[in-house]
Amino acid sequence: MSRHHYDLCCRNIGRPAKIVTHDGQVHRGIIRRVSPSRVFLEPIGGRRNLGGYGIGFFGYGAGLGIGIALGAIATIAFSPFFFW
């Protein structure tokens, strides 16, 4: 699966993507760089907050510096639009 995600990210450098990881984090941003183990996004702002009150757990996406482990990715979606 990591290899699949690696190829997918390499083919889509420069495109906006939404990446959901198995631990429940939702990352949104433009793919800027891919290493054999991680993908680095430039975050896109404007996260839609649907409000409500939880227990303190919230899956924030990581920023550009940290990168996302390819093995932790559940799914990647691409969009031509910056609708987030």
């Binding site: 939404k18 429940g24 839609r48 907050n49 649907l50 919230f58 899956g59 924030y60």
Partner: peptide, 23 residues
């Protein structure tokens, strides 16, 4: 049950709050 929120927006938000991540 949400105002002006599409299913994918609801999905992302619930996953961020602890809903199972589908595989």
């Amino acid at each position: 049950f949400f105002q002006n929120a599409e299913a994918d927006i609801i999905q992302d938000y619930l996953i961020q709050n602890g809903l199972f991540v589908p595989v």
